[in-house]
Design a protein around this nucleic acid. Structure first.
Lengths: 340, 340
DNA sequence: GGCTGGCACTCGGCCTGCCGGAGTGCCAGC
DNA sequence: GCTGGCACTCCGGCAGGCCGAGTGCCAGCC
């Protein structure tokens, strides 16, 4: 029905206006700014229906309307077209990310870029260890019974762990251990590494067994634990952009949740490499995020999500623009990591 | 003179009261809360003098007095006794930092600990590369003409760089290169590494010269550039603790400066391992910090400062307490890093 | 000479009442 | 089913007045 059509059009107009002005939007202003072809009075009727259906709400009588979480949801699902990035923005992405010297640098630049592009808080997860493969394992002796195990993944991530050995380690053993480990784990996905350990223990020369056992135990602990996933966060200053308007309960709990990382990591673990995920306000499981929206997507190459990245901001955000930015940045990061 | 004595005592009382209550403090309240042995009227006279000398100021007529930067400076220099940490706090430091698995973890815990202890923003610098020594250099081939150089320092820091080689690298060359590099740089301070390069180039087997050249160039670039120093920041949520009172111009510029890192890195480069440095308000060179105070100190072992750590907060802070916390944490971190 | 109590003064914060504007809901008419 | 008109509501800002906190100054006292 043309009737419902227009009502959705009104909702779209409300969302757009409210996002850009940050003021509750009234029927008159809507009629002026948008070519809806009807009078304010008619719009009022539509608004009353929209409010009854729960898509919009009034902060108080005689204020304009504001979209609810449900309203934003409908907007994102049905009313927003994908907004292509401007040429300048594409250029900025390239300029920003090219010339990064290592993974740390790539992700650091990514988070700054995303924050700048979207004017929101940006979050980038390091490539998940469990989905990465071993490029190289290095063993360095630091003391008689203490080794430093350095893991280098195919995504360029480097992790280190100190391994306490049950017995003193001879100098020659280190080299032997190194080749042993690399031939056992090299090229393998870390998620599968656990399976090869029994084999490895069996075939290892006797004098190395204890050593191999200790080292592989550490290795497995390091990668099985999802708590070892890392996060880079940037643009927190953007939280204060909208004054106290965007986050009525102050930005404090949000900052705390971001620093805690646990909450955000859980979010990132749900990403998918092909579709941008949007969680609006109350859709977020964790309480500290119920006043915020999260736009996230996985990055990686060939459909394999290495990790997630995204933004966190007020529910009053430019969804189409931010979704486009997040997707574009993720693609580019995926490319860069595939190259190196 | 007993006269001046008391005036300083009044200043101390003002600082203490203002820090704990966040309200401008008046003569009457001062006389009640502190045993100054004189009447409010006398205190008023002293306050008038202190104000004339620039140690305190009135936000407006008929409000109490508030210390100026100069007042805090005098307080820190002459009026504050070192406040020993409570047993519980010492315990907390140990509990928090023990059990860290690697450098990243140690510094991450440190920053959380400091933020929690002081209720301010905490900043921890990674051990400076130039002051560290090479524990091990690892070379991994990623492509025909591309090597991954991994540097492990004696402080447990791991850095990686991709090296583009002028010629294709043979598999055997990698192992040779590795031993060569390690015998040349192993155990050496990175700051001196540059000097050994000419020697190294001369003694290197001919077929490796180009390779060695490329690798050592990357190595030097990595360590000479101070921009490669890293920072961990935590507790930014604490900036919002005092409401809008502590940072009238909003916390925005401060958050931006912290994320920028450059400003903070410069601060950290000036630390000294033996004395806690306090910069109050306008004493900070950078404009974004003129409304804040910084308490910092170097950490390390045996007088050698590996890096800096500290806190950033409002000028209205508990200087003695924060100085004690910063010093204690730095000591403990130094110990832990010396052990590993 | 320095301290003290008293007193007049200042000024910000808060509460009150008031008004205008924005926006709504409803209704009758087209 | 849309539209113009109208009465109603309620927020936000403004002016005025009061109160309290705090000061500066002065005369008197030790």
């Amino acid at each position: 029905m043309a009737h419902d059509e227009r009502r959705l059009e009104v909702l779209r107009a409300i969302v757009q206006d409210f996002v850009s002005t940050n003021d509750p939007v009234g029927s008159k202003a809507l009629a002026e700014r948008h070519d809806l072809g009807v009078s304010p009075a008619t719009i009022r009727n539509d608004m009353a229906v929209l409010e009854e259906q729960g898509y919009i709400t009034q902060p108080h009588t005689s204020a304009g309307r504001v979209p609810t979480d449900k309203g934003y949801r409908l907007f994102v699902d049905r009313l927003s077209a994908v907004k292509p990035l401007s040429a300048a923005e594409r250029k900025a992405i390239e300029r920003f990310l090219d010339g990064a010297v290592d993974l740390h640098d790539v992700l650091g630049r990514t988070v700054r870029l995303l924050a700048q592009l979207t004017r929101q808080v940006a979050v980038v997860q390091y490539p998940t260890l469990s989905r990465s493969a071993v490029r190289h394992l290095e063993v360095v002796q630091v003391a008689d019974t203490r080794l430093l195990l350095v893991l280098i993944t195919d995504t360029g991530r480097v992790e280190q762990r100190v391994v306490e050995c049950p017995v003193a380690v001879a100098g020659d053993d280190v080299a032997e251990l190194r080749t042993l480990l690399n031939s056992a784990f090299g090229g393998r996905k870390l998620a599968e590494a656990g399976n090869t350990i029994p084999d490895l223990l069996e075939t290892a020369p006797k004098h190395l067994r204890a050593l191999v056992g200790a080292v592989s135990a550490t290795l497995v602990e390091t990668l099985v634990e999802p708590g070892d996933d890392r996060l880079v966060i940037g643009g927190t200053a953007n939280l204060t952009l909208g004054g106290a308007l965007d986050f009525p309960g102050s930005v404090r709990p949000l900052l705390e949740a971001l620093e805690e990382q646990v909450v955000v990591l859980r979010l990132m673990s749900e990403v998918d490499a092909s579709t941008v995920m949007v969680r609006i306000g109350g859709e977020n499981a964790h309480e500290s995020l119920t006043g915020a929206s999260v736009v996230s997507v996985g990055y990686g190459s060939a459909g394999r999500a290495l990790g997630g990245l995204g933004i966190v901001g007020p529910t009053r955000m430019d969804y189409p623009g931010n979704m486009a930015a997040v997707r574009a940045v993720a693609r580019y990061v995926g490319q860069i990591l595939a190259e190196s």
